[in-house]
């Protein structure tokens, strides 16, 4: 029995086993990172496909086809940009990656400006907003939270307002 214990101790304290454990841990981390990347990529690609397929319905017929931003897929769970059109419950935002996004505002959407809660009726064209939401099948983002912030351009022109 003592011999078996000693042998077991030798095995579990061996450097070879430690290396194997490190190797397995590394493989697990790589696989988790890979699956996270696949999941996020899938969401973005799905939204990008829906956005492209519904572009004419959402924004009307244009002479030029919609162009994806530089890394090919728009963000599916948020938008940041200036409001260019308001047709409640839809608000169209020009995102930073030069794409248009339709934000769907519903009764559950929380809208804040500075420290005050406001309603969708208080949103105005040229307001700069940050939106958190979920994508839908029509290539739109159903907003859960909207924050109206000062436009970066106005901050650059008037740094004292910071």
């Amino acid at each position: 029995m003592k011999k078996i214990n000693e042998k077991l101790k030798k095995v579990f304290e061996s450097k070879f086993l430690v290396k194997i454990l490190y190797g397995i841990g590394l493989i697990v981390i790589i696989l988790i990172s890979f699956s996270a990347g696949v999941s996020v990529g899938f969401h973005r690609a799905s939204f990008g496909r829906a956005w492209g397929d519904n572009y004419v319905r959402n924004f009307g017929i244009t002479l030029e086809p919609p162009i994806f931003p530089k890394d090919n897929f728009p963000n599916a769970h948020g938008a940041i940009g200036k409001i260019i059109k308001i047709e409640l419950p839809n608000v169209i935002v020009a995102d930073r990656d030069n794409t248009e996004r339709v934000i769907v505002v519903n009764n559950d959407t929380k809208i804040e400006k500075i420290r005050n809660n406001i309603t969708s009726g208080d949103l105005k064209i040229d307001d700069f907003i940050v939106v958190i939401g979920s994508p839908n099948e029509q290539g739109q983002i159903e907003a859960k939270f909207i924050r109206v912030i000062p436009s970066p351009d106005s901050l650059l022109n008037n740094p004292q307002t910071k």
């Binding site: 996020v40 969401h43 963000n75 599916a76 948020g78 929380k110 804040e112 958190i132 859960k144 939270f145």
Partner: peptide, 16 residues
């Protein structure tokens, strides 16, 4: 306020 929407916020951060 955003604790309720932590999943969407996290995905926005990861996507951006």
């Amino acid at each position: 306020s955003l604790v309720v929407y932590w999943k969407d916020l996290a995905l926005s951060l990861v996507e951006s």
